[in-house]
Design a protein around this nucleic acid. Structure first.
Lengths: 352, 352
DNA sequence: GTAAATTGCGGTAACGTAACCGTAATTATA
DNA sequence: TATAATTACGGTTACGTTACCGCAATTTAC
């Protein structure tokens, strides 16, 4: 409500006055366009540094009418619906950046089809783009993308899964190993004796190594803490209910005394469904705040869900591109999501 | 990097043209200042509605040089250091709003001295303020504040603890009952038999009823789930180590078979310290992501900490004032913080 | 019936930055 | 040496909104 009165703000005009040049020249220096002699450039830069000039980004945006456009490349909504949350975070960020003239264009690929990824990349490259937020689900293909981006000097941020050493702005997503480790501790709390079963459910080989990292973390917990429980595992490479039932039937009849089950991804609801059908009561731990999972959490068939803020991943992803491309921030750090423990009692308050 | 070319943006100029008036008149209508006949006002408003005019807030802020100032009124850093986190969130928000000409002024009161609260209120009221973020630790005094604010039409947001029915913009903080309920579930997981002890540590009567709400939630869990554990409780009204040791000594010698201890606030580290000294090993659950607490979490003396994003409370508090006062949002909902479960295995990733 | 107040509105200068256009002065080219 | 190209800079408009100043026309007061 109040006006800033005293504010003889220090701006280009003042710099120009002090340097005995026009504001046009100051502007040229600020955007290091050419047409300024080294001498005046130095003079101006000295003043800028001395007075720690910070441009008024409001006026800047108004004058330039500059609009950034970012591309987002993520899987289209999958069976599990996992990507709905990041998408909604992306939309939230897009909405709040819209008023500053920033546009977000969304592109989707099919998780079952690597070529669809490259097709979308080609599509994106047609456009004038100031940055890309990408889920590098396919490693080879993701590396191809980074090559193109590097050539065109387009910054890119990885979301949800990482491909190390790719000169990306940063990574935003879970720390897989540690989340598995956390699952180990929870399992240890809930199961006092008996065997434990690790279940990996995944059709895609590319996804499989993510699951493995979680399993490694899970096992590491028991090792580090000298818990000598027997840990079994099965890989289920089909995701339909009957395939899962079959696989579980087999292992549960063969192996007696399994008290806890750890599903390394959001497919935990399938296992819960199976338990419900068969009236089995075991400690069940899995991943992700999905409707189906919450249903079984509520029913008491799932004890813990580990969630990693998928919505926020999307939001942060876009915002990070903004910080890098529009606000010129550099040295942006990787952003590991918290390892949230969601239970029957706190899920209502969970911010995805 | 690209410019918005086609954008013949629909603005006041266009409205003026369509309504056959000057932009000055449009501006008068937009800010419903007087000096416009009912007829033209209607004409302009119709156009505004028809074309769904949205003002360019960039230009608006540039032209108006309007700067908001918000006051923050929270406890000065306490023994436990709890308020450092909200404060850092407040600073983070202040920093990112600064470039838009928004100032945040911080005021602190002493949690042991109600009069210091009112003194700071008087201080604030000297200033031109566009909103207040306040921790209503003292109920009576907080109500006095709201009365003054209502009179002066200053909006206010409550943080960390609520005083219902005060016409505040919204409340931002934990849902105490539910967080206690969650603690109940965790305790139930970790303790299979034996008695449970609830410990309330607090000097201030005003704070005590917050603790009670958590205790109620805690007990409610066991009741709802038909767990017939015996739940004992003690109130400790002094916070020094020896007072706490004395009280715990007494109850632990009198009552045998206590397996779990629930401390209803961040004083849990004091209990952990006592356990460490005496070599006692029990399940210990408490509150808040504080250095001391994390230390004992790391050492395995505390099993679970329930945390409610104090940093984010501060951040959201300021941002909410901004949304209300600057962006003119209305009907802002209460923002209950998630009930985060922090363990030895995930605290490194916790975003406070 | 004249003076004073009020109403309704238009013109326009800011706000701080961006960037186009023009033009001297200098340098390169023929 | 005349002409073209380049360099180095200034002047100025534009971005969309705000808000001040001012002026007719109308209404009210005396």
């Amino acid at each position: 409500m109040s006006k800033s009165l005293e504010n003889k703000e220090f701006g280009v005009k003042e710099i120009a006055r002090l340097a005995n040049v026009s504001i046009a020249t100051v502007d040229r220096v600020l955007h290091n366009r050419k047409g300024v002699s080294e001498a005046t450039k130095k003079r101006i830069n000295d003043i800028i540094r001395e007075f720690d000039y910070k441009p008024n980004i409001i006026a800047s945006r108004l004058a330039s009418k500059r609009t950034s456009t970012f591309a987002v490349l993520i899987p289209s909504s999958t069976e599990t619906g996992f990507w709905e949350a990041p998408l909604s975070g992306i939309d939230r960020a897009a909405k709040s950046l819209k008023q500053y003239g920033i546009t977000v264009r969304k592109f989707f690929f099919d998780l079952n089809d690597k070529s669809s990824f490259l097709k979308q990349v080609a599509e994106i490259m047609q456009l004038q783009i100031d940055g890309i937020l990408v889920a590098p689900s396919f490693i080879e293909e993701a590396i191809q993308l980074t090559a193109i981006c590097s050539e065109r000097k387009i910054p890119y941020v990885f979301i949800n899964s990482d491909v190390p050493g790719q000169n990306n702005v940063c990574y935003i997503g879970p720390h897989l190993f540690c989340s598995g480790y956390q699952a180990g501790q929870l399992m240890d709390f809930a199961v006092k004796s008996g065997k434990i079963l690790v279940v990996n459910v995944s059709k895609e080989l590319d996804q499989y190594h993510h699951l493995l990292r979680k399993e490694e973390g899970f096992r590491a917990y028991f090792e580090k803490n000298n818990r000598k429980l027997e840990i079994l595992k099965i890989d289920i490479t089909k995701t339909d209910a009957s395939s899962i039932a079959l696989a579980l039937d087999e292992v549960l009849t063969k192996e007696r005394g399994i008290e806890g089950v750890f599903v390394t991804n959001s497919r935990v609801s399938s296992v819960a469904h199976y338990f419900e059908q068969k009236g089995i009561d075991k400690v069940l731990i899995g991943y992700d705040f999905l409707k189906e999972n919450i249903k079984y959490l509520e029913l008491g068939l799932i004890q813990f869900l580990i969630c990693q803020k998928p919505e926020e991943q999307g939001y942060r992803g876009v915002m990070t591109l903004h910080r890098y491309a529009d606000l010129n921030e550099r040295n942006i750090e990787d952003q590991f999501m918290p390892i949230d423990i969601v239970t029957k009692e706190n899920y209502r308050f969970y911010h995805n």
